[in-house]
Design a protein around this nucleic acid. Structure first.
Length: 577
RNA sequence: GCGCCUAUAGCUCAAUUGGAUAGAGCAACGGACUUCUAAUCCGUAGGUUGCAGGUUCGACUCCUGCUAGGCGUACCA
């Protein structure tokens, strides 16, 4: 496809140059010619609005420009197109406001099948990223409680984006930043301490302000009592809180890791805030800021001149009590990312971190990193919608929340563990990151076509089933060289192949725009062509051997693309359902 | 008050980043299993893209101003 596109590009580009040389087109510079796949076959296979784009510069009507470009296409090429002997172009038409529509010859379709067959699981990949190292930080939930479903969404999105970036040639890694230092984990230690002492009979104790009320804290404290009894009561309170804090972090972190693993997300790097703090990097940064005169003292605290960077207020970096605010370890952490050599860093944050974006970017700028080095985007909230359409509220602090594990447990009850993960991942991925997501629990467990996950997986299973059935009848697919692809004459077969041909550009687009949701949509569309095809046309037909083999090749390609797409999403491609 | 996000079919969302006639799925209605899996397919219907302007050959997309909702705006992370 790429080679074909390039050839078409070159033909049009030289036509434009020729028109300019002939003095018929008054433009100073030939811009890049944009191509897009067409929405309807009437518009050919690919189209370009280049004539519309040149209209202003050339001071001519777009349609005229299109005509002129067409007339200046190399004479030999034109002759071959007209006589139907051109290897790739079947027809060039001017339509609408001045679109140049290119109808490709069937060779293009065969070429697509050839490419898929050759590349197999690599179909869809490319080396656009040129091996550039990219780091994606996501989830990064505080180690103070189980992962909620927003973290689940972030996990699915981040994981998939890493897959996508790697598919298009970057070297992307998954990183989880553990906030194992600071006020939140201190509160965790205090909360566990309260539950511990309560379990040992102390009364009149309350979870401190900002502490964690969750039942899991009580359970964990009771476990400590069971295994270690009351020995910790001998410690001073702050020592005991520190001990429980560390125990709690380790315990909850292990739980979070287990949940993520269950969800099919495996991080490459786990970074620790505590380690960053102990590395001395915070002091380096403070010193750097001091040298650059970004800091000043006021009200017994140290402030950063955020207003110099366009923010509406300055912010505290060292509190009155001498503690750093979270900005400092965060800035140090990002400096550390930079030092590790990533050319691009992407942070996915939760919806409650909106205020964070501009400040973090400003700190990064203050540290001298390029503006576009850090990309931050918010993964919007998730609402679980029950049968009645009611939304369940989630709050970690109030102690009642819907965890990622609960969600998968609940789904697994009806559809089994593997599909539970598949369905959850798909639902988390099918919306743009910036969109709020309504997770329809009822739809998720439906075993029918209205459930998009099953719809796509079923298409894959059907492909597999054809080969299985074929094998029973002693039919072995032939290698593509031995297949007459000309037998694929049905319009729906061409439509299917055109859709298959789109896959690599969808992958690339989705990776570069960081929009994972395009893959689920694409796969759904592909399945949406395959199912009708399957229904209308029989593949295994021993009465028509040549056609059968051509169709088997096509089905193999559909199967590959479905599988490759699902794999990018971390969703299984079942061979039977 | 200020900042970010969102507003598209009855519902949940897309729209190749400014291109041709705005598309899917649910929900509704009618039909198809002697067939490679009916977890499927075929058909019907659904729209002033929140409102008002602007930019241009062309706007769901960009700019301005409104309206409504969500989130943020800590010496918490």
């Amino acid at each position: 496809m790429d080679a074909i596109k390039t050839e078409v590009y070159n033909i049009l580009e030289s036509a434009i140059h020729a028109a300019v040389t002939a003095g018929e087109l008054a433009i100073s510079e030939v811009p890049t010619i944009p191509f897009s796949p067409t929405k309807t076959p009437e518009h050919g296979d690919i189209a370009t609005p280049i004539a519309l784009g040149l209209a202003k510069q050339a001071r001519m009507a777009p349609r005229n420009i299109a005509e002129i470009i067409h007339e200046h296409i190399d004479a030999d090429t034109l002759k071959r197109i007209e006589s139907n002997t051109h290897p790739i172009i079947h027809k060039i038409e001017i339509a609408g406001a001045g679109f140049i529509n290119i109808h490709l010859s069937d060779n293009y379709l065969y070429d697509t099948l050839q490419t898929i067959t050759e590349m197999q699981s690599a179909y869809g990949t490319c080396d656009k990223g040129a091996g550039k190292p990219v780091q994606i930080e996501f989830v990064s939930a505080n180690p103070t409680g189980p992962l909620n479903i927003v973290s689940g969404r972030a996990a699915a999105v981040g994981d998939t984006l890493v897959n996508l970036l790697n598919a298009v040639g970057y070297k992307a890694i998954r990183e989880f930043y553990v906030n194992d230092a600071g006020g939140q984990v201190q509160r965790l230690g205090e909360s566990i301490d309260v539950r511990y002492r309560q379990a040992l009979g102390e009364e009149a104790l309350e979870i401190p302000e900002g502490g964690y009320q969750g039942e899991y804290i009580r359970e964990f404290a009771e476990t400590i009592v069971e295994t270690e009894s009351d020995t910790h009561l001998q410690l001073k309170t702050d020592e005991r809180v520190a001990l429980f804090r560390d125990k709690g972090i380790a315990h909850i972190l292990a739980q979070q890791k287990a949940s993520l693993e269950r969800f099919g997300v495996n991080f490459d790097v786990w970074s620790s805030e505590k380690a960053i703090r102990e590395s001395g990097k915070l002091e380096e940064i403070i010193q750097l800021f001091q040298e650059k005169e970004y800091l000043y003292e006021a009200e017994d605290a140290t402030w950063f001149r955020m207003t110099d960077f366009g923010d509406d207020k300055d912010c505290v970096v060292i509190r009155r009590d001498g503690e750093y605010t979270y900005f400092v370890p965060d800035a140090a952490y990002h400096r550390d990312k930079f030092d590790r050599g990533f050319t691009t860093v992407i942070d996915f944050l939760g919806p409650d971190h909106q205020g964070h974006i501009s400040r973090l970017k400003n700190f990064v700028k203050a540290l001298g990193m390029p503006d576009d080095w850090l990309e931050i985007s918010i993964i919007q909230q998730v609402n679980l919608v029950d049968a009645e359409g009611n939304r369940l509220d989630m709050s970690k602090r109030r102690g009642q929340f819907y965890t990622l594990d609960t969600l998968i447990d609940e789904l697994a009850e009806t559809v089994g563990e593997q599909f539970a993960v598949d369905v959850a991942r798909y639902f988390f991925l099918m919306r743009a990151n910036s969109s709020h997501l309504d997770f329809n629990m009822e739809l998720a467990i439906t075993h029918a076509s209205e459930n998009p996950v099953f719809y796509i997986q079923y298409a894959h299973a059907r492909c597999c089933s054809i080969f299985e059935q074929g094998a029973e009848q002693g039919i072995t697919p032939k290698p593509i060289e031995a297949v007459s692809l000309k037998q694929l004459t049905e319009p729906i077969e061409h439509e299917l192949i055109r859709k298959l041909a789109e896959f690599p550009s969808i992958v690339l687009l989705s990776a570069e725009a960081r929009e994972a949701h395009r893959i689920p949509h694409y796969l759904h569309e592909l399945a949406g062509i395959f199912h009708p095809y399957y229904n209308q046309h029989r593949v295994l037909d021993p009465a028509n051997i040549e056609k059968m083999h051509a169709r088997l090749t096509l089905v193999q390609c559909v199967q590959s693309v479905l599988k490759n797409g699902l794999t990018l999403l971390g969703i299984s491609a079942p061979t039977s359902m």
